[in-house]
Structures are given as C-alpha cells and as structure tokens.
C-alpha cells in the first residue's frame, strides 16, 4: 500500500544521527507510527513526500524513564503504556499520567510515544498541557550538536516546531514538582474513549494556606497550539483562593483564549465550556484548601 518507502532500523543513537545528517531524501523518524501511518494512508500533506522512515524502537538512548538530580527523564520513544505504568510517573507526575490515560485506545497507547505526540505539534496532542505545566524541557540532538529547550519554546505554531531536519528529540526532562503541588488535567471528547480532544487543559499550583504561591495553566485543544497562560498565571499569583476569585480566573481564561485564537466556528461551544470546566477543575483541585 505504501510500498515506495524505505525503512531503516538503526540500533543506536549514533546511527540515527548519522542517517539524519546524510541528507538523503525526505527523512522522517517513526516510533509508534500511529500518526504517520494514518497520515500516509490519508495522503496528508504533512507526510506525502516521505521517502525514508527511521524506526527508533531499537534505540536504547530514547527509551526508558528515570529520575536523577531532581529531574525525571522520559525517553522520547517511551510509549504511553510505559509512561502510564511507570512508578515514578505515578508518584511524581499524576497530571501526565491522567493525560496519557485519555489518549486513544489501549492498542494506540501500546505503540504511540510521547515525543510522537508533540513532535508534529498538532493542537489535539493530549500530553502537551500536562508537560507544559510541569515545565518540561526537551533534549534535541544532531550529529554535531546537543541542546535542551523548554517545550513551550519548541512548539512554534500549528504543525511547526524548532526541530531541524537533522535533529531528533531524544528525551523529555521534567523537574520533580514539589510535593505540595496540586492540580488536574481535563479532557473533553465526543466519546468516553478513543476520542479526539475537543478541549484539554491542565493546571498545577501551590497554595500556602489560601494564597496562590505559584500557578501554572496550560491549554491544549482550545488554542492553535498548546500554550501556557502566562498573563493568567501572573494575575493569579499571590491571590486568595475563593469561589469568586476562581470564577474571575476562569473568565480571564476565556478572554485569553479569544486573544490567542480569535473566534472560530467551534468557539460558540468551546468558550463557555472551557470557562465552566476550568472553574470546575479549579474548585475540585482546591477543595481541600477551602
């Protein structure tokens, strides 16, 4: 069906980097393939020129989840199932775990990988809001360079990222959040399972008594790309948490989304729901403190 494509199966990262630097034809990295194979079948413009696929499932450097020096490091080719079952993620990154659980079907989660989720920068990538509130950074390598940037910087525009042709995302690093952080991930789809996100957002905060010491808010499928709401975060910092304030914050989120997204065919539905559900999530997340 897709018979003109060559598939390479390098055994380590150096081989991958070598292939990427060789500059032969339209190269593309494949791990789970859940995005690429459907894209190829549907003759999506994003994939149509692909000539060579580099399968990284055998590359140890992009697998595995570990914790060191106050950071959790997730291999780019970790599947959602691996992330979901990982003890470190369960303990330290519950919002990411919740986001991962909502993705696709088990068959998809058994194949699809975390970097695959955001490396194309599709707005409905469910891990993005969770990774953004965790201040995730990503390691990018090419044969000549190695850099680490924040996910926020990496995601430039719809289907556009900072990734260069000869580069690969190797790991996602997340500073271990302080123990008293509270938060949640929200996803709305048209079904209870295997649904493309209509709305996603995540919130993470630290309260001192009733005061917001720190808050991080990120959206997924309600803005053109996943993004942090820094204006909103600045506004909320230091404020007392009460129902009225949470309502004000939710209204401000509506305002921010209009600024970022403008009004679209779906806004008539999404705007009221985002504000309403953001308020609901804030209420349930802060419940213990009120």
């Amino acid at each position: 069906m897709i018979s003109s494509i060559e598939i390479l199966t390098p055994k380590n990262l150096n081989e991958v980097l070598g292939i990427l630097s060789s500059n032969g034809g339209d190269l593309r990295i494949i791990a789970g393939g859940t995005d690429i194979v459907t894209g190829l079948k549907q003759e999506s413009n994003r994939f149509i020129k692909t000539e060579v696929l580099i399968d990284i499932n055998r590359v140890a450097e992009v697998k595995g989840i570990g914790q060191a020096n106050g950071r959790i490091s997730i291999g780019a080719a970790s599947t959602f199932t691996e992330i979901y079952k990982n003890q470190i993620v369960s303990k330290e990154l519950p919002i990411l775990k919740k986001a991962v659980a909502t993705i696709g079907s088990l068959q998809i989660r058994n194949r699809a990988t975390i970097a695959g989720n955001f490396v194309n920068n599709a707005p409905c990538a469910d891990t993005v809001p969770a990774l953004l509130v965790y201040n995730a950074t990503i390691e990018i390598e090419s044969i000549n360079s190695k850099r680490e940037i924040s996910l926020q910087e990496f995601l430039q525009g719809p289907y556009i990222t900072q990734l260069k042709k000869d580069e690969i995302v190797t790991r996602i690093n997340i500073p271990v959040p302080p123990e008293n952080f509270i938060g949640d991930f929200y996803k709305l789809g048209r079904r209870q399972a295997v649904a493309i996100s209509r709305i996603t957002f995540a919130v993470l905060m630290e309260l001192e008594k009733n005061k917001i010491n720190e808050i991080r808010i990120a959206s997924g499928a309600v803005t053109p790309i996943g993004t942090r709401f820094s204006e909103l975060e600045k506004f909320a910092k230091g404020k007392e948490v009460n129902n009225n304030f949470l309502k004000t914050l939710a209204c401000k989120m509506g305002d921010e989304i209009i600024k970022l997204t403008g009004l679209r065919w779906s806004s008539e539905y999404k705007l009221p729901v985002v504000q309403q559900m953001f308020y609901q999530i804030l209420r349930s997340a802060t419940k213990k403190n009120l």
Binding site: T248, C251, G254, D255, E268, L271, Q275, Y279
Partner: peptide
C-alpha cells in the same frame, strides 16, 4: 458576550 460573568458559573 463570550466571556462569562460570575453568575454563569455552575456550582460543582
């Protein structure tokens, strides 16, 4: 008026 006023929020 896409941005809510406080009365539009539903109690959990």
């Amino acid at each position: 008026k896409p941005v809510f006023n406080n009365s539009q929020f539903i109690e959990p």
